[in-house]
Every structure is written in C-alpha cells, then in structure tokens.
Computed example of a mutant assay.
Amino acid sequence: MATLQYGTSTDPIHIEDRALAHLKVVIATKLRRQESFTLSWKHSDDEPGGRSTIWLHPSIPLRFTFDDPEPPQLNMRWIEDLMHSANSSGGIMLVDEVLDPDGA
C-alpha cells in the first residue's frame, strides 16, 4: 500500500500502489501547470468514515511513497479518465481502473 503525504499532516493517505502511480502522473501535470484542484477518494473498509477530499495546491508539500520499488506499466486510458475528472469542477475522484481492451 502506497502513501501520499500532504502538507504538514502526519496522517498518511493510503492508496494502492498502482492507483497512486497513475494519480502521480495526473497530479504532477496539474501542479506543474500551477493548477489547484481537489482529490477525493472512498475510504477502505478498515478505515473510519466514508470518503475524504483534499485541496491540492502547488505551494503545499507533497510526497508519494510506494511499497513496490519498480513502477508499474501505466494505463493511458486510466490517466486520461483521471485527468478529465481533474479538469472538472468536482476535481479528481479516484475511480477504479478500466482496462483497455488493447492492453494499454
């Protein structure tokens, strides 16, 4: 399970390695453009509450930590879906990966 450290909070955000690898691409792209947005996700069954949202801004420190030392092959369709949601007024909603029939 990968973690996202955001701002000065000592509470890590736990996200599956593959999902965080895809989110990292989208988040880095948006922040490189100096664009702020929200990121929302549903809590896993072992966490209290139902869902969370954070405001991502280029000036707030962010760290991605992965359990797997090797980066996964990225699914461009999933990245495009996440980028599309990042550009919406609701921000990124972490959704499950949709497998491309072409295997991309």
Rank of each mutant, 00 (worst) to 15 (best):
L56R: 04
S9R: 07
E16M: 04
F64V: 12
P12C: 08
R18D: 12
V98P: 02
G50E: 15
S40D: 06
H43N: 15
L4P: 02
R18G: 07
L39F: 06
T8N: 13
G91T: 04
P71H: 10
L82I: 00
L82C: 03
H14D: 07
E47S: 05
I54V: 13
K30G: 01
G7V: 02
E70T: 14
I92E: 01
G50L: 15
T3L: 03
H14E: 10
F66V: 09
I15R: 04
S89G: 14
T10I: 02
N75D: 14
W78Y: 15
L39T: 08
T65F: 13
P61L: 05
H22L: 09
L62Y: 07
Q73V: 14
W41K: 08
W55F: 11
V26Q: 07
I92A: 02
G90W: 04
A21Q: 13
F66G: 11
S88M: 07
H43E: 15
A104K: 11
L74K: 13
S44F: 09
E70N: 14
S9K: 08
E97I: 10
D100P: 00
N75C: 13
L20M: 02
K42Y: 12
A21W: 15
Q5N: 13
K24S: 02
P48N: 06
T53N: 02
S9L: 08
M83W: 14
A104P: 02
D100H: 12
H84C: 07
L23I: 02
V98G: 00
P72S: 05
R32T: 10
D100V: 00
L23K: 08
S36W: 03
G50K: 15
L74I: 15
L39M: 11
L4R: 03
S40N: 13
M83R: 15
Y6D: 00
S36N: 06
I15M: 01
S40A: 14
G103H: 06
L4N: 02
P12A: 11
E97N: 07
S44C: 09
A86R: 09
P12E: 12
R33A: 11
L4F: 04
D11P: 00
I15F: 01
R51C: 15
T10A: 11
P101F: 11
S36D: 04
R63K: 15
A19H: 14
R18A: 11
K42L: 13
E47W: 03
M83I: 09
Q34L: 09
S89M: 14
E35C: 04
E47M: 10
Y6F: 10
D46P: 00
Y6M: 01
I79N: 06
